[in-house]
């Protein structure tokens, strides 16, 4: 699996650390309540097919990226900087 980092170019997935679903970017307000925090921390869409995830280019530029991928074919479509992508 290779990921095209928008800053470094195409790199081996070993350079990256995967955090999980891009949902991690949609942090609720501290007082958003139990349901919102449960959903944020635990519940997942868990799609079979296209998904969006948060990856960290740990052994590269150190950027957080939102990677669009397919969980069935393992194809990687696109990686954009997390600060541009939003949840």
């Amino acid at each position: 699996m290779r990921i095209r980092c928008p800053l470094c170019g195409e790199r081996d997935s070993r350079e990256f650390h995967v955090m999980g679903a891009a949902e991690w970017l949609a942090r609720p307000a501290p007082d958003a309540g139990l349901e919102a925090w449960d959903a944020y921390l635990h519940l997942r869409d868990n799609p079979a097919g296209p998904t969006r995830e948060l990856w960290f280019h740990e052994a590269g530029c150190g950027a957080w990226l939102v990677v669009a991928r397919d969980t069935v074919s393992h194809a990687v479509f696109e990686a954009v900087p997390a600060w541009e992508a939003g949840a």
Partner: peptide, 18 residues
């Protein structure tokens, strides 16, 4: 590994990732 898909069919989400 497919619990998330079945949950989706029944209209709820699970604290699970495959």
């Amino acid at each position: 590994g497919h619990s998330g898909r079945l949950a989706g069919m029944a209209g709820f989400r699970l604290p699970i990732e495959s």
